[in-house]
């Protein structure tokens, strides 16, 4: 009878050891990264958009890899949505409607980041999407109406910036429908996203994006992307993207002349 007790004790010790190892297994910060005056990693600069190494559509944005997407919740809200033939439904951006988050974040345009003690500001060239993330410890503004880009708040976990965003409208999750015009991938109004941003090496950010959507998925799931710093784009800076300037797709039907 002694042997099982020893085995159990040893197992608990091993589990405790693994847990301790896991808890201390925070990502190593590469040497030489830029830091702010208060010692935080400094992300201020110009970058490419998040890129993955998985299955991608031949389009102008990164999409989530099918293998990263979590199991659908039985009886949950539909994740895939068929086109209806109404362009206002099938591609609202034809009407210059916003891409929303996270879809717009993955568009293949430049990103510029400004950072201070109390704010992290990310401006995306596509649709000139701007995300102002308070870092001052405030809570979510739950009194607001749901929105395309949600309500983000951020905090530091060591050298990793963590951004939690809630209060979304139901909207397209990504540009999957460019790859497969027969279906869009949707998120629900219960979406909560968590972004973990850290320096992966001196020229690259790790961008871990977690999708927590309990109306659609059984559990949260994540995908890590990389974001490449492009200091060579600094002289040009961000360029203008004004969707209404010459939108030749009003009504969802694109036509020149």
């Amino acid at each position: 009878m002694q042997r099982p007790a020893i085995f159990i004790s040893a197992s608990f010790a091993l589990l405790g050891c693994l847990a301790a190892q896991t808890a201390s297994k925070s990502p190593q910060t590469p040497a030489g990264i830029p830091r702010t005056a208060d010692g935080k990693p400094n992300f201020t600069g110009i970058y490419e958009w998040p890129k993955s190494t998985g299955d991608q559509c031949e389009c102008s944005a990164t999409i989530f890899d099918a293998k990263s997407i979590g199991a659908l919740k039985p009886g949950g809200e539909p994740f895939f949505e068929k086109p209806t033939g109404d362009p206002r439904h099938d591609e609202p951006r034809d009407f210059c409607m916003p891409a929303g988050f996270p879809s717009g974040m993955l568009a293949a345009y430049a990103i510029q980041i400004f950072q201070s003690k109390n704010y992290f500001v990310l401006i995306h060239e596509f649709q000139r999407m701007s995300r102002v993330v308070p870092l001052d410890g405030r809570k979510h503004r739950n009194e607001l109406e749901p929105s395309f880009y949600g309500d983000p708040i951020g905090h530091w976990e060591g050298d990793t910036l963590v951004i939690e965003t809630t209060n979304f409208k139901r909207w397209s999750l990504d540009d999957h429908f460019y790859n497969n015009p027969n279906e869009s991938r949707m998120h629900s109004d219960a979406l909560r996203t968590i972004e973990h941003i850290r320096w992966k090496d001196a020229k690259t950010l790790s961008y871990l994006l977690t999708i927590d959507d309990p109306k659609i998925f059984s559990a949260p799931w994540s995908q890590e992307f990389t974001i490449k710093a492009r200091p060579d784009w600094e002289p040009t800076g961000l360029m203008e993207y004004e969707c209404q300037e010459n939108n030749r797709c009003p009504g969802g039907h694109c036509q020149g002349k």
Partner: peptide, 13 residues
């Protein structure tokens, strides 16, 4: 050559 474009869905147009 990539086929699709930004903003509007190439396949729908």
């Amino acid at each position: 050559a990539p086929l699709a474009q930004a903003h509007h869905s190439f396949a729908s147009e």
